[in-house]
Design a protein around this nucleic acid. Sequence first.
DNA 1: TGAAAGCGGAGACAGGATCTCCGTTCAGCG
DNA 2: CGCTGAACGGAGATCCTGTCTCCGCTTTCA
Lengths: 208, 208
Amino acid sequence: MTRRDSVRNRERLVDAAREVFAEHGFGATLDDIARHAGLGTGTAYRNFPNKRAIAAEVLREATEQIAVDAREALEVEDPWDALVQFFERTGARQAADRGLYETLTGQGDDEVQARIWPEIVAAVTELFNRAYRAGAIRPDAAVQDIAAIFALLGPAFEMSRAIDPNLWRRYLALLLDALRPANQPDLPVGPPPVESLDLILRVGKRNL
Amino acid sequence: MTRRDSVRNRERLVDAAREVFAEHGFGATLDDIARHAGLGTGTAYRNFPNKRAIAAEVLREATEQIAVDAREALEVEDPWDALVQFFERTGARQAADRGLYETLTGQGDDEVQARIWPEIVAAVTELFNRAYRAGAIRPDAAVQDIAAIFALLGPAFEMSRAIDPNLWRRYLALLLDALRPANQPDLPVGPPPVESLDLILRVGKRNL
DNA sequence: TGAAAGCGGAGACAGGATCTCCGTTCAGCG
DNA sequence: CGCTGAACGGAGATCCTGTCTCCGCTTTCA
C-alpha cells in the first residue's frame, strides 16, 4: 500500500514541474523543481528516475493540447479564420509556457516532440492547403512557411514574457498580414524544401 | 624583438576566431579556435588573456560595420528604400555571422554591444522616422518594431545556416511587406514601450 | 650554435548539474 | 498508542564541460 503523503508529494512534484518548466524552460534543474514543491531532491528522484521522465510527464498533456488545437481549427468553416485560430491558440500556449515552446522547437525532449509531430504536421498542412485553395493566402507562400512563422515567433514569445504577455499577438498579426494575398512583388527567395521541415523547427538547437 | 612565427600565429588565431565564431557563435571554446588555427591552447592564451579578449577583437570590426550600414542607409534618398537597404545589409551580415548576431541580441559580450548600441539606435530611429513621415510605413507601427523585427529574424538566420544561405531574405521580405501601409485592421496590441528597447534585443538571453 | 622566446597539450581548476546515500521522520496498522 | 518500515531531506559524491596554467620540448635568430 502506498502512503497517502507519498502520492500527494508526487502530485506536488508534477505541479511544481509544470510551473517551473513553463517559467524557466528546461534549463531548470530538478533541484529547482523540488524546492518549488517544498520537497527535497531525494523525493523527486524517488518518484522519477530522472529529469527527462518528469519533463515527459508534464509535456505529454501540453503537446497533446496543440494537436487538439489543430483538430478544432479544422472544424472552423472559413479557411482563413481556421488558420488564424490555430495560430492564436497555439501561440497563446507557447507564450505562456517556455518549456512547451522549447519542446516544439526541438530544444527540449526529442522523444516527446517526435511522438506528437506527425499529427500536428498533417493537420497544419490541411489547414494551409484549404486556405491556399480558397485564395486566402498569397500565392508565393508554402506550408513550410507556417512552420517558419512559428520559429520566427519564438523571440516574440520571449519578449512577451519580459515585457507584456500580449505582445506576441502584435507580431503574429504582422506576420499574418504578410501572409495574405497582396499586390506586393513576389518573395525574393523560394520556400525552404519540404524535407527541411524538421530543420526549421529545430532552429536554435545547439549543433556544434 | 618579436619572433616572426609569433606574430604569424597571432594572426592565424584571429582569423580562426573569426571563422569559428561566425559559424558556431560564442558557444565555441578557445580550444576549438586554437585547433582550427592549427595551434595549441597555450599559444592562444599567450596571445590573449581570455576568451572575451579575442572575441572583442573579432567583433569590433563586425559591429562597426553595422554602424556603417546605418550611416550609409541614411544617404539613400527614398525613405523606404533606405530602411530596406539597412535591413538587407545588416541582415546579410548577421546571417553570415552567428557571433555577430549573438552580440547584437545581447547573448554575446555585453561590453561590445553597449559600445556600439547608441549609435545604431540613433541611426535606425532616424531611418524609421523618415519613412514613417513619408507614409511608407503603416501608421500603427513604431520604431521599437524595427528592433523587434531583427529579433524575429534570428530564427530565420539560423534556418539560413541550416538550409539555404538566402532563406532569411524570404522572411525579411515577408516582414517588410507587413510593415507597409495596408488596409488591414489595426494591430491588436500596441508596440512595446520605448524603454524596453534593450529588453527586445536581449531576447533569448538566459535569465534564470 | 646556444639562449631566449615560443609552442603544445595534458591536466589542474572551477562551476554547475545530476543523482545517491543514509540518518531521521512519520503514516498507519495492530 | 507504539512500532516499524516506507518515505523524506539535503549534503555531498560524481560527472561533465569549459577555462586556463605549467613546464618539457621546439624553434628562431643574433
